[in-house]
Simulated assay, not measured.
Amino acid sequence: MDLSRRIGVNESADGVRTTPLNELHRRLGGRMVAFAGYDMPVQFEGIMAEHRHTREAAGLFDVSHMGQVSLSGPDADKALEALIPSNVQELKPGRQRYSMLLNDQGGIIDDFMVTRRGEDLLLVLNAACKEGDVAHMRERLPAGVRLETLDDRALLALQGPEAEAALQAIVPGVETLSFMQATGFMWEGVDLWISRSGYTGEDGFEISVPAGRVEELAERLLADERVNPIGLGARDSLRLEAGLCLYGHDIDETTSPVEAGLQWAMQKRRREQGGFPGADRILKELADGPARLRVGLKPEGRAPVREGAEIADADGNVIGRVTSGGFGPTAGHPVAMGYVAAGFARPGGAVAAVQRGRALPMTVTVLPFVTRNYKR
């Protein structure tokens, strides 16, 4: 087998990396763009149509640009806990958890998923952050903990209300998984690691597969009339409607988990004992409240409000900034998220986005904008 079919990432002459599905994306008519250093499809049929198809049937996403990392060795879970605010030591085999790498100021270096597989912990990292994340962990993990980057694995996300039926048709047994549960399966002699999770607000799965077989699996799934290929554009609008953070936009190294409304990812023992980077700041914010908070924003009218727009109060005073914005096809109106001073975070409050010199009225609203349809 050709080497390029065995490894998960290739690099073109101009330095832009590709996933093992790059040729398939092009055959399917994907409009390709540079994203996090990768050549990725932003859309196939169109963002609006792909968004709606995922909400109504099943969408297949190539997320092979994300980092897959294994941590193993004595007390690997305890060592990881020293870098994050979540409880990993009590995480049961086959269970998954959302967490964040923190800097010493309590800011978020990256958000990621961690799963206990039995002998190791599997981490899935954001594409733009994965090299930095690995360097950060290697520098801080004790010598007995082994960190391995799984560069020979690709990653698919199958999302939507028909995802279970489509995947079960070729991988029997996946229907037994509940939200944030994962286990190994075999398909056509190939070892798959499948979790019931995703980042669209819909039911669905993430499938880790050997890179050399991912195109075959993707084509098999796409042969099902319920499954369409989906690009980055709809992935973004889906996660925004679901009120989910995009790293580098809604969270970054200046943002604490409490400001971002992610304190639910900090289990009771970690809140009580601390012992993670930036614990003094974070525990103080839990007790006293942060100075700013991430909120949902519903602009009036049909015009979307874009990232970077300042948020002002009724007197024109700047109280925050929009971090994500666009049109919500399922919600049927523009949707946005941003940070406002804590005193303005109450749902129903009237604020305005300052965009091109105009003040566009918005209402602070509860997240998410659409109901999340996870299988509990």
Rank of each mutant, 00 (worst) to 15 (best):
L60F: 01
E175M: 07
Q96E: 12
S70P: 09
R6S: 10
K375E: 08
P142C: 01
E45N: 09
R146G: 10
A223P: 09
A36L: 12
E162C: 11
P299A: 08
A223R: 13
R55C: 02
L101S: 08
P347W: 03
L238V: 01
S64M: 11
E175F: 12
P257F: 10
L238T: 02
S12N: 14
P347F: 00
Q159P: 07
N22S: 15
R239M: 11
L192P: 06
P210I: 03
E131Y: 12
E56D: 13
V63E: 03
D280Y: 07
M40Y: 10
T330L: 14
I207S: 02
D203M: 05
K298Y: 07
Q273W: 02
A165T: 12
D77Q: 12
G231M: 07
I47G: 05
G343K: 10
E56S: 06
L150V: 07
S237I: 05
W187S: 04
G29H: 12
M362P: 05
P347L: 01
I319S: 00
T18V: 15
Q273A: 14
K268C: 01
R31I: 12
P257W: 04
V33D: 07
Y98G: 02
P299R: 10
A128Q: 15
M186W: 15
S178F: 13
Q355P: 07
Y374G: 09
L217N: 03
R55W: 05
T18S: 09
F327G: 04
K92Y: 08
N10Q: 14
D104A: 13
G349I: 01
G348S: 06
E45V: 04
G73Y: 03
H65C: 12
G201W: 00
R235N: 07
I251C: 01
L262A: 14
L147A: 06
V214F: 10
L155H: 12
R17M: 14
A127H: 13
I84C: 08
V209H: 03
L240R: 13
S4W: 15
P368Q: 10
E202M: 07
A242N: 04
D104Y: 05
W193H: 13
A49D: 11
A287Y: 04
S195M: 08
G37A: 03
T365H: 00
Q355C: 02
G261N: 10
D151L: 11
G59A: 09
P161T: 01
G349P: 04
Q105D: 15
N10I: 08
T200M: 01
Y339T: 00
M266N: 08
S197P: 10
K375G: 10
D133H: 11
G204N: 12
M113T: 11
G231L: 06
R269I: 09
A223Q: 12
K284F: 11
F344S: 00
